[in-house]
Design a binder for these strands. Structure first.
Lengths: 337, 337
DNA sequence: TTGAAAGCGCTAACAT
DNA sequence: ATGTTAGCGCTTTCAA
């Protein structure tokens, strides 16, 4: 069933059908109704590939997400969708997985959907100029920035928190209360990504408090999985009797860690404090409520779109925005006994 | 940058470039290398719309999801992706929102991506034959079935649990332990959807136990939001002093409910038991661990794809599969005091 | 092994 | 207000 069939069935030309379908005003009411009727009856749905192919320019904004199930991304995606919609553009969402290259995916999407701009969610932090060469539209890194890459500042845009600084702040919440045996639960200390940045913040906070870095207190899980975080926390609890607090680099890991503390017969926060960064919805429904630095998900998404559209519409060039977290004083942090 | 430019730059014809790009064997090694080189250099990415438009048939399977952020969907989507990939097909994911019509979205996707089949995740339960008329490819409802619609059994496929039965089982866990004042926390009693089915199971279990239905113990939140569930549970706790257990129709609602119980100064399960259906990952990391009927997410996804591909490849027609949940004996259910 | 050309379904000039 | 027609970028016969 193509536009030709509809034209035939309605006894008009394809262009008239096209006009009706695209709400052009220059069609008589009678013809419009007739065509619409036929469209209904025959359950005709226009072929988007053909449309995309021929339309000179779209109002599409692409969103490439690594791991759509990540609960931290949910509100960010939501904010991006809302902002894009609000501005009269259409969001095209594309999910990729661990191994895939977000820039390739973005470039491919850009071509086929005639994207005007691209938002990257959960990309990597070490782009080089070759990496982005395939992309000929403005793009913005959302929730991360290119800390380990070699891109010029004006070659890309980003909206993120200062991961190192916020991790420092989180650990400071602990040292300020007198904790000295503070473990860190993270994905990796050297992934050239957010995990590494937050690890650096942890190190700096310890250093500043005059606490030597103890490798036994550093637990790398290799993933962000709950089960891996749980096991990691278990190992920490077995290994370090004197540990009084855990800094988890993500809320999800912290939730698993709290469970591990509980299962080991200790209590949060009396025997072991837990603090994290992210502020996903569910972490305010844990018992005890997780103390965490909440990322401004709405702003992260909203700013990303604002920056992008400023570029798309020629109002401004690349820029970088650093947002701040808000401490949620939950119930998972106390002074050590 | 089009295939023409690449042809020009490599000094060959477009068809040769196309052959190289599609790994056709009949190209000389020298030419192939030359073309690939140019492709690299110029960061050329083929236009997918044009490809989709011209390719006679794809190996695309569509997945239309209502609410990609739903944690219960995560492992199901994962299983679907894996099964589709495994069978040599490509998954095309499309997210829709509350208001949108999944059948329209599916039909549209089917046309533009030349889908061979479609999986629907989180659709509604009352289709009629007009609803599906626009869809001319096999489809399967995943995690729900058409309980409130008028479709002939052989007009569609489905993989789901028996929502009413499983809800009945969940509530039986409570009545069997002696609970009589059992509340239900749900989206709606009459949404013509899963919520309503599970409500019916609740009613049946009460009836069978000789417990009259008490409207005070029925709390409708109107959504699946955590905050709404929390507030609903609060109201329940305020309203019903004698309530000893809550059946939440989803894990996420149960987590919020457990928090509400805790915040009201009561304890789970000593003062109030909580049971649910779903079995999302995080609910085994709550304190206490949620007792819930775990849906077989992997099987749900895997079966859906199997059924679909059986149809796509002409091995079988429409069919319906009912899967069973597994009780996770957590720590949130006890006998009443 | 390579090239020329038709046509996928659609939109938007350009005609009428 | 409506119809005719030229492409959009690509793959695939068909010919060479």
């Amino acid at each position: 069933m193509t536009i030709r069939d509809i034209a035939q069935l309605s006894g008009v030309s394809v262009s008239t059908v096209s006009r009706v379908l695209n709400n052009h005003p220059d069609v008589s009411e009678a013809v419009r109704r007739r065509v619409l009727e036929v469209v209904q009856e025959s359950h005709y749905v226009p072929n988007n590939s053909a449309r995309d192919l021929v339309r000179p320019q779209s109002d599409n904004i692409g969103l490439v997400v690594r791991g759509i199930g990540n609960p931290f991304f949910s509100p960010v995606i939501h904010a991006i969708e809302a902002a894009v919609e609000q501005a009269g553009y259409t969001l095209v969402l594309h999910q990729i997985h661990s191994g895939e290259d977000e820039m390739m995916a973005g470039a491919s999407l850009a071509r086929s959907k005639k994207l005007r701009g691209l938002v990257l969610l959960g990309g990597c932090c070490d782009y080089r100029s070759e990496t982005i060469a395939a992309l000929d539209i403005p793009f913005v890194c959302c929730t991360y920035t290119n800390s380990f890459g070699t891109l010029a500042q004006d070659a890309y845009s980003s909206v993120s928190i200062d991961d190192q600084m916020e991790a420092y702040r989180a650990v400071r919440e602990l040292t300020a209360r007198g904790h000295r045996n503070i473990a860190v639960l993270l994905d990796s200390t050297c992934d050239h990504s957010i995990s590494q940045l937050r690890y650096k913040g942890y190190c700096r906070a310890l250093e500043e408090a005059g606490i030597p870095l103890d490798p036994r207190l550093v637990e790398e899980t290799g993933t962000f999985d709950l089960s891996a975080a749980y096991e990691g926390a278990r190992r920490l609890l077995n290994r370090c009797d004197d540990m009084t607090a855990i800094f988890a680099i993500a809320d999800s890991m912290a939730i698993a860690a709290m469970k591990a503390v509980h299962d080991s017969g200790r209590r949060v926060p009396e025997d072991c404090s837990v603090i994290a960064i992210d502020g996903i919805e569910i972490s305010s429904y844990t018992v005890p409520t997780l103390t965490t630095l909440i990322q401004p998900a709405d702003q992260l998404g909203g700013e990303a779109v604002r920056i992008l559209l400023d570029m798309v519409e020629g109002r401004a060039g690349n820029r970088h925005v650093l947002l701040h977290t808000t401490l949620r004083n939950g119930e998972s942090v106390h002074a050590p006994k």
